[in-house]
Amino acid sequence: MSGVPIYATTGQRIWYYGFRVICGLIFFFLIAPILVIIPLSFNAQDFFTFTPEMLAFDPEGYSTKHYEDFFSNSDWQLALRNSLKIAPVATLISVSLGTLAAIGLSQSHVPFRRGIMAILISPMIVPLIISATGMYFFYSNPYIPTPFGKIELPFTLTGTYIGVVLAHAALGIPFVIITVTATLVGFDRSLTRAAANMGAGPVTTFFKVQMPLILPGVVSGGLFAFITSFDEVVVVLFVGSAGQKTLPWQMFTGLREQISPTILAVATILIAVSVVLLFVVELLRRRSERLRGITPS
């Protein structure tokens, strides 16, 4: 479909351009709410809408005071630090265990493959509120079930850093599994056989041959896991305590209680982060396809 042919009727022309206008409006609907936040975050007033000064492009109407607030307010700083402490560790757990399992799952003969896959993907499907409820119950009083009754463990995970990290790692795993198995689908098995043939052990083969080739998939899976943890509110709200307050949690309470324009500054920073992530993932996808010998689209 490249332009309207010259023989098109008026109706066809109207339809062609009308359709494009409709699509444009939908794209606008998708992107405008995100873009509108950016100028609003530079508002000199504590308003959530454009002030007359802003509309007149008067420099007086703009300021970076909400950003200054974000970087000086101890609540926000604590939240940022917590987020940065929780997300990388959770990501590390999901990526290391997830990659290993994805390699296992991509072998040619795996018993119960479908069932295992269903279990591993389920944290993505089960509504967060249900995961959070279950984790809240179980982590506050962990036990080992045996046929003779429960053996209660003498510690609690709710309100602890470890509890939140475990929960977030579990939520990130489906993303790692999906991206890494997708990368492994195109992986040429003869390469590992060739490496083995030349005398490399399984560990050497993995790190020298397989890992570099699937690395883009692993990294983008890791990015998904990272953003899942970094962006997660419901579970941390239930499993964590005030000491584990993360950035989204702080935003959530901010939006619910005293809505402060600092949220818009934080939101703008997060938009910048997601733009960077989006481009990194896109680059990795292309690189991965090139490595696997597929022409990137």
Binding site: G104, Q107, I119
Partner: peptide, 27 residues
Amino acid sequence: QKLRALMLIAPLLLFIMVSFVMPIFDM
């Protein structure tokens, strides 16, 4: 081969069981 595949999957499966599936069953 099957055993090796399962061995690779086992740590994650165990992890998901403890951190996710058991909480759901608890609920």
